[in-house]
């Protein structure tokens, strides 16, 4: 079953939010790049980056929500998440993307691309899962 979406987006997605990378460097959320996540995961003892490819995007019974099916990691495990249409994901080499970029920009002031089937998002998993 997909995860239930929360009613509001976390405040750290708001443009201007200060994010601390694993090496201590501070960046604004809108300035983050793929390398920042990759380098932070390298430093982390517990977390590693997985590639999660968008397989499907379906409408949800929940208003303003969608169900996104990802193919996660080298084993292509199928994971569904239910999120608000404005929820931003970070796409490799592209940056923040959401199912409804206009709404994301309206609510968070965060510039977004349109999240589409085939996009490869950054996700996290535990390094100890071996």
């Amino acid at each position: 079953a997909p995860l239930s979406p929360s009613s509001a987006l976390p405040s750290f997605f708001m443009k201007g939010s200060i994010i601390q990378l694993a090496d201590g460097e501070l960046k604004r959320v809108e300035d983050l790049r793929t390398e920042d996540f990759l380098q932070s995961a390298e430093v982390s003892r517990e977390l590693k980056i997985d590639s999660s490819t968008v397989e499907r995007i379906d409408s949800s019974r929940t208003p303003d929500a969608v169900i996104i099916q990802f193919s996660v990691g080298e084993h292509k495990a199928q994971v569904c998440v239910e999120v608000l249409v404005e929820y931003p994901f970070f796409v490799f080499g592209q940056g923040w993307s959401s199912c409804c970029p206009d709404r994301t920009t309206q609510l968070l002031a965060l510039s977004c691309a349109k999240l589409s089937v085939g996009d490869v998002c950054i996700s996290l998993t535990l390094k100890s899962l071996k």
């Binding site: 996540f37 980056i49 998440v81 994901f89 998002c121 996290l124």
Partner: peptide
């Protein structure tokens, strides 16, 4: 006068989803 506000800092790993696949080798 503008009062200084404490700056809230969020960890990088809050921003991307944790998609646990329960996959084991």
């Amino acid at each position: 006068n503008v009062e200084p506000r404490s700056l809230q800092v969020f960890p990088w790993h809050s921003l991307v989803p944790f998609l646990e696949t329960s996959q084991s080798n």
